[in-house]
């Protein structure tokens, strides 16, 4: 566990450096001339840090959802949490109730995510361990997606429509330190909530009956855990749009390293998510296209086949 953590931290930091020194105009910083400091520290570094933090947030969120739903297919995107957050944020921005950079946005997104989870709970009921959760998640995500399309369809001008559509595809390009400062406090609060409820999360290695007998106030603990997860997801959606599948891939990466214990799985999944998103964003920067590909699109290209493999394994 310690060896894997050190390895992942080292890989993440290495990727952070590589990502920062890598640009469309070439490798390094000498060729950037006088603008080198501005380009490196005000454009590239915040982008790399934002990719890493988003990966960590989504990796941890995915691991927690998989543990508490006892379902290796659970993920913020698939469960509709990310869609609900995005919808709430777009509605608030659309109505002019909030500025694009506002500390209230992650909380608004969290509200949307919690509403999605409540809808998921109503549809899936107690059957959160099987494919029913995924089907319910698809229903919730589709409905929030339809509402989102409606809001976009009614956008006041085509530029706003284009801007919101691109944001929803998921990207960390053209972001600055303000997005990092928006994300960090939400992550800190969410991690504090998850750490507070760590015993409850860990106890999900037991069957539901045993868990119910272990002295937890289950509903109370569960809602605090879900609040932490949705805060992570909504803060990610606010700063980088909807990036699917990282929450699915990162916990499986941790399991491939042999880690199944919930707290350790969350840690490795977070570190793995950070490294993974940095890597994917580096690929985004490397692909020679006229218009830079969106991060969420490339992540989906990698994650969707992985989901199919997992589904085939589970139904076999």
């Amino acid at each position: 566990m310690l060896r894997h953590s050190v390895l992942l931290i080292f890989s993440t930091l290495l990727l952070l450096v590589i990502h920062t020194f890598m640009g469309s105009s070439g490798w390094g910083y000498q060729h950037l001339g006088d603008a080198a400091a501005v380009i490196l520290f005000d454009i590239r570094l915040p982008r790399a840090v934002l990719a890493m933090l988003n990966g960590i947030a989504l990796g941890v969120a995915g691991a927690v959802l998989q543990v508490i739903f006892r379902n290796p297919l659970a993920e913020p995107g698939i469960t509709g949490v990310a869609g609900g957050s995005a919808l709430a944020i777009v509605v608030v921005l659309y109505s002019g109730l909030s500025l694009p950079i506002s500390g209230a946005l992650p909380l608004i997104g969290m509200f949307g995510g919690l509403v999605s989870l409540a809808a998921l709970w109503l549809i899936a009921g107690r059957h959160t361990s099987g494919l029913r959760l995924i089907l319910a998640g698809v229903a919730v995500a589709s409905f929030s997606g339809a509402l989102l399309s409606l809001v976009l369809n009614l956008a006041p001008n085509p530029f706003a429509y284009l801007e919101w559509s691109l944001w929803l595809l998921g990207s960390v390009a053209n972001r600055g330190w303000e997005q990092v400062y928006l994300l960090l406090p939400s992550m800190a609060v969410a991690f504090a909530l998850l750490y507070w409820q760590r015993h409850f999360i860990r106890a999900h290695i037991f069957d539901p009956q045993t868990l119910a007998s272990l002295g937890f106030r289950q509903n109370w603990s569960l809602w605090w855990v879900l609040a932490g997860v949705t805060l992570l997801v909504s803060a990610s959606v606010v700063t980088a749009g909807v990036i699917s599948f990282i929450g699915l891939l990162a916990p499986h990466l941790a399991r491939l390293l042999g880690e199944h214990r919930p707290p350790q799985l969350m840690l490795l999944s977070g570190l793995g998510g950070g490294a993974l998103l940095l890597l994917i964003d580096a690929v985004v920067k490397l692909i020679p296209t006229t218009v830079e590909l969106q991060l969420g699109v490339v992540a989906a290209f990698i994650g969707a086949p992985w989901l199919v493999i997992l589904l085939m394994r589970q139904t076999r």
């Binding site: 006892r70 361990s129 290695i205 069957d207 009956q209 045993t210 007998s213 199944h260 214990r261 919930p262």
Partner: peptide, 15 residues
């Protein structure tokens, strides 16, 4: 929790 221990009928461990 301090008063009784409980063993359910079919506890299943998946982790």
């Amino acid at each position: 929790r301090q008063l009784h221990g409980y063993l359910p009928q079919n506890p299943l461990v998946e982790t």
